[in-house]
Design a protein around this nucleic acid. Structure first.
Length: 516
RNA sequence: GGGCCUGUAGCUCAGCUAGGUAGAGCAUCUGGCUUUUAACCAGGUGGCCAAGGGUUCGAAUCCCUUCAGGCCCGCCA
């Protein structure tokens, strides 16, 4: 059984409405690791629905959380905002309503692309509208009990006078510098390091925030959460999950949600990703280079508790190939090979939107990577594909959009992540090359042989070999020569296919120029 | 110090949530093939399933112990 089905079955043991939650603090570029949380939850959600369960998928953005420090990707001037809620800090690019929005919006766009449609909650709105008020009051009533729970389970000493509420200073706007002096419902008197003393009324929303270890369980109860996965960092003994479970049980009288612990995703050659260390690949970049179905496939095809390595180099091409193979097997165009586990479910969960009724048109991705380097844009690539009859004239709109989308991903990848090995440029003018007599001789034969053939990969391929044989020139030299005069480099894509995608006239003229 | 995960062919891994004769891809070798940015076809070689113990008629699979590796926690969230 697929892991998402196993989790869904676990939830279905209880016949009620399930709320599957996922929560990420938009304090920095949202990265591929966060995608795992989203996609893990979405997969379970989809399985639950397909089994006839009643379920809702929600996403809570904790945008009332405070800025921890000036992250490496922030200007130094952000020093003055440390400690303030990220929804109340200016946007780094100036185009969004707030710091939180800056990162959140791009993430929400990414969600759309991968076909995840959660109901969205924003913590800052929930606090300000008073949704948290009951939870806050209950927490404050149980200050001693909560303190005890946290100290016992996390083995951490909390300071004297600690209360489960971080007051936001009315003057400096920071959540981190205030100390409570006296609590008498509903008023808390406090003092802030900035020099300000004052009092707040907890019945008014947004005057402060529950600390994370209390906020989380409070949220479970408030939103009736029944399932929420989290990263291994939170799963540790004595961590937020442990204290949260005790707090939600004993203080909020609500059962802790079921969960899955997921491992991190490593970036090949870079180790684990941390948005706070700037070693992360943003969700945006990730999606720009990876077709959405392939990204889903990466997550869905692996158990959450296995760490993954995302290779933004050649490995990405292999991943796409692997996905395409799954697709062919799913549509029974090919035999399954052993090791393709849970093929049907995995393929279905990989689809951002609907599952196609018949197999989508496939063009080998590596070939597409070559094509987008020949054609300037999709229009030209399409022209080549049509001319060479690699796509049918009556290609469906869906198929064309799919191909086009993939071409865009391939292009982004080439521009930003691809190793030089796979890159080339068809030179508009003949590159400066010093050809040997041998090479010229070969080109002469090639010219003759190419002129007489129909412009198809195999014919071209044969023409190259014929020429090299006639002149007794090593085949390696033959290929090198071709790449030199067209690309200005020693190596290139498989010559037959490659040249067939170029205009015959262009190639012939280039060879003629080279001989002169 | 604590936790999670991993250990199966030279490499990457599947098989472990149904306990029932050890699998795939790559690499290698043989044969075919006109030697290309990770080419194709047919076939072959290759494993004490980390080690030890337990449960069982039967264990890669379940349980315990040990060893090795990776990551996380031990600030804040």
């Amino acid at each position: 059984m697929h892991w998402a089905d196993v989790l869904a079955d676990e939830l279905l043991k209880e016949d009620k409405k399930h709320v599957l939650a996922t929560g990420i603090t938009p304090s920095g570029p949202i990265h591929i690791g966060n995608m795992r949380e989203i996609l893990t939850t979405d997969s379970v959600y989809r399985c639950l629905l397909s089994k006839g369960g009643d379920a809702e998928l929600i996403y809570v953005a904790d945008d009332f959380d405070h800025l921890r420090k000036v992250y490496p990707y922030l200007p130094k001037t952000y020093e003055k905002y440390v400690g303030m809620p990220i929804s109340e800090i200016p946007c780094p690019c100036g185009k969004h309503k707030s710091y939180a929005d800056h990162y959140l919006i791009s993430f929400l766009n990414a969600l759309k692309e991968i076909g995840v449609k959660p109901k969205i909650y924003r913590a800052n709105e929930m606090y300000k509208s008073g949704k948290y008020n009951d939870s806050i009051q209950i927490a404050l009533q149980n200050t001693e009990k909560i303190k005890e729970i946290i100290q016992k389970i996390s083995k951490r000493e909390l300071p004297k006078g600690w209360i489960p509420f971080n007051i936001k200073c009315e003057k400096c706007n920071r959540l981190t510098n205030t100390k409570p002096i006296l609590y008498e419902y509903p008023i808390i008197e406090y003092k802030c390091d900035c020099g300000h003393s004052g009092e707040i009324d907890i019945k008014k929303g947004g005057v402060g925030k529950l600390p994370w270890r209390v906020d989380w369980p409070a949220r479970w109860k408030m939103l009736n959460v029944t399932f929420e996965p989290f990263g291994k960092d939170l799963g540790t003994v004595g961590g937020a999950r442990d204290t949260g479970k005790a707090i939600v049980d004993e203080i909020y009288d609500y059962p802790a949600p079921k969960y899955a612990v997921y491992e991190f995703i490593m970036l090949k050659g870079m180790g684990a990703m941390h948005s706070s260390k700037g070693t992360a690949l943003s969700a945006e970049e990730l999606l720009n280079m990876t077709p959405p179905e392939v990204l889903r496939f990466l997550i869905v095809n692996n158990q959450p508790d296995k760490h993954l390595v995302f290779d933004s180099g050649i490995g990405l091409l292999n991943l796409v190939d692997e996905y395409d193979k799954f697709e062919r097997v799913y549509f029974e165009k090919e035999e399954a090979i052993k090791g393709m586990k849970e093929l049907k479910k995995t393929y279905e969960l990989s689809q951002p939107y609907d599952i196609a009724k018949t197999i989508p048109f496939q063009l080998p991705y590596r070939h597409l990577v070559t094509l987008v380097q020949i054609g300037e844009d999709w229009k030209e690539v399409k022209k080549i594909l049509l001319r060479t009859q690699q796509i049918p004239k009556n290609l469906s709109v869906d198929d064309e959009n799919h191909l086009k989308q993939r071409a865009e991903h391939a292009r982004y990848w080439l521009d930003n992540f691809a190793p030089d090995m796979v890159k080339f440029e068809v030179k508009q003018k003949i590159p400066k090359v010093n050809l040997t007599k041998e090479q010229i001789k070969f080109l002469n034969s090639l010219l003759k042989n190419l002129s007489s053939i129909t412009w198809e990969p195999e014919n071209i391929h044969n023409a190259i070999y014929d020429s090299s044989e006639e002149d007794k020139i090593p085949i390696k030299t033959a290929f090198n020569t071709i790449y030199q005069i067209i690309l200005g480099q020693e190596k290139g894509p498989r010559a037959g296919y490659f040249l067939s995608n170029l205009d015959k006239k262009f190639v012939i003229e280039r060879v003629e120029q080279a001989i002169k």
